[in-house]
Amino acid sequence: MSTHDHDTAGAVRTWIHGWTVSRGAAEPVPTPGGFSIDVGLPGHVVRHVLPAADEAAVRRITGGPAAPGTWLKAPAEPEQFASWLGPGWSLAGGAGFLMAAPPHTARTGPAPRIADGYRLDTWTRGGVARVLVRTADGAFAARGQAGLTGSAFVVDQVETDPAHQRRGLGRVMMRALADAAAAEGATEGVLVATPEGRALYETMGWQLLSPLTGAVRS
Rank of each mutant, 00 (worst) to 15 (best):
149 T>Y: 05
109 G>M: 07
167 R>Y: 00
156 D>E: 15
178 A>Y: 02
82 A>N: 05
46 V>C: 08
191 L>W: 10
159 E>C: 07
43 G>S: 06
81 F>N: 09
138 G>S: 02
6 H>M: 08
176 A>K: 09
183 A>L: 10
6 H>N: 02
150 G>I: 06
39 V>K: 08
25 A>I: 06
128 V>L: 07
22 S>H: 06
77 E>D: 13
192 V>Y: 07
178 A>M: 09
189 G>S: 10
149 T>I: 06
51 P>Y: 13
17 H>D: 12
7 D>Y: 02
199 A>C: 01
160 T>I: 14
211 P>V: 05
48 H>C: 05
100 A>Q: 14
137 D>C: 04
194 T>K: 12
190 V>N: 03
9 A>F: 02
38 D>H: 13
94 G>I: 02
175 R>F: 08
83 S>G: 14
176 A>N: 01
117 G>C: 10
157 Q>R: 09
38 D>I: 11
125 R>M: 09
84 W>G: 06
46 V>E: 15
65 P>Y: 07
134 R>E: 14
94 G>R: 00
139 A>N: 09
205 G>T: 09
213 T>I: 02
145 Q>R: 15
119 R>Q: 14
197 G>S: 00
27 E>S: 09
6 H>S: 11
212 L>G: 00
130 R>L: 01
5 D>T: 07
152 A>V: 04
121 D>E: 15
7 D>L: 13
2 S>I: 02
46 V>Y: 04
203 T>S: 14
90 S>Y: 05
189 G>T: 10
175 R>M: 10
199 A>W: 02
56 A>D: 15
22 S>K: 04
150 G>P: 07
5 D>Q: 11
172 V>G: 02
157 Q>Y: 10
8 T>R: 15
157 Q>E: 11
181 A>W: 08
118 Y>I: 02
185 G>L: 03
139 A>H: 09
117 G>L: 09
92 A>T: 08
191 L>E: 10
72 L>E: 10
161 D>W: 08
213 T>F: 04
33 G>W: 11
148 L>Y: 12
186 A>R: 14
2 S>R: 07
